[in-house]
């Protein structure tokens, strides 16, 4: 009996088509939705005591200064809202509180799983406006929170951990497609981070971890003893470079994915513990887990019958 082998390009087309467009479970994005919302609430718990100082019209940096020097021009800030609402008798503080109320409500809506894509879009927009108001106070936490919210606009995420029954059928092509986009985005993030570091003499010479941990702004734990163990400082510096730069190579193959994922998780745990960047470390772990953790572990749930899809 003769077997016909498909031409290579048709075979490649089917592989790529399956990789991006095969229906998949929305479970990773349900996990991302819940964890990201909990993370935003945790962040609010830390920031609300200084909310007026960070985002108010008379804060650490006043609105008119922030607007003039730092905000992205032509994109909205809370000051723009206040300019309108002041005419109706609202004070700047009241506008900030109304805005904050809307933001918190949208996060609650997103967490509940009601119209998750709409809630994600509203939360994402409000998150942007908030941070454009005081962009000088932002760092990586805002960036990656925003990335998570952005992808939740497009991916279905209401089929699990939701108070409201979702109408989006499972499995979903969009769930798989957006997951691949998130994965590619993370590869770009770490590759950019890695090659940018390689340009610096601090990183190539193996001194960067020392400089970072000796920096009083970041040294959560006294690390001056590291100067007596220079090999440890150098190896840890080069480890960061390797883990970040080669993330995009080794996160994909089954044989290396778990190892690389754990290394990146450990990196972010160490960033939290030793540099005091707990929130940054946490949001990175959440996004990595959603992007690559469920692929790794979700299969077991499918095999156990906990997630019922075909062809995953």
């Amino acid at each position: 009996m003769q077997t016909q082998t498909q031409p290579l390009r048709i075979s490649m087309y089917h592989s790529v088509n399956d990789y991006f467009f095969k229906p998949g479970t929305s479970y990773p994005f349900a996990v991302l939705r819940v964890l990201l919302c909990c993370f935003i609430f945790l962040q609010l718990a830390f920031l609300l005591p200084a909310w007026n100082y960070l985002y108010g019209s008379e804060g650490y940096v006043e609105w008119f200064i922030s607007n003039e020097l730092f905000s992205i021009k032509s994109l909205p800030t809370i000051m723009d809202m206040a300019d309108v609402l002041n005419k109706y008798g609202f004070t700047d503080k009241q506008v900030l509180y109304v805005f904050t109320g809307l933001y918190i409500s949208s996060v609650i809506g997103l967490l509940s799983g009601w119209q998750p894509r709409l809630m994600a879009a509203i939360t994402c927009l409000l998150h942007f406006v908030l941070n454009n108001t005081a962009i000088i106070f932002g760092y990586g936490v805002e960036t990656f929170t925003h990335i998570g919210l952005f992808y939740l606009i497009f991916a279905p995420s209401g089929n699990y951990f939701s108070l409201v029954k979702s109408k989006i059928p499972e499995p979903s092509v969009m769930a798989n497609f957006v997951l691949r986009i998130l994965q590619i985005h993370l590869c770009i993030v770490y590759f950019n981070a890695g090659i940018a570091k390689m340009e610096g003499i601090d990183w190539r010479a193996g001194e960067a971890v020392w400089y970072t941990l000796a920096n009083s702004n970041y040294s959560n734990v006294g690390m001056q003893w590291l100067s007596k163990v220079p090999l440890l400082a150098r190896v840890s510096t080069w480890w960061v470079l390797v883990i970040e730069t080669l993330y995009m190579v080794f996160i994909w193959p089954k044989a290396t994915r778990r190892f690389w994922l754990w290394n990146i998780v450990i990196l972010h745990v160490l960033i939290g513990v030793f540099m005091g960047l707990y929130m940054f470390g946490l949001v990175m772990i959440i996004i990595n887990f959603a992007a690559f953790g469920n692929l790794q572990y979700g299969r077991k749930k499918i095999q156990k019958g906990k997630i019922n899809i075909s062809g995953y």
């Binding site: 992205i72 032509s74 942007f128 454009n132 990586g140 960036t143 950019n192 340009e199 610096g200 920096n215």
Partner: peptide, 26 residues
């Protein structure tokens, strides 16, 4: 691209702590 990346992914520069480590500012 700048407007898009700011709105969509809140800036697309991931070169944190690079090329070198900034000094302490107090």
């Amino acid at each position: 691209g700048e407007y898009y990346t700011q709105l969509a992914v809140m800036q697309a520069d991931y070169s944190f702590f690079s090329p070198n480590i900034a000094p302490d500012f107090i």
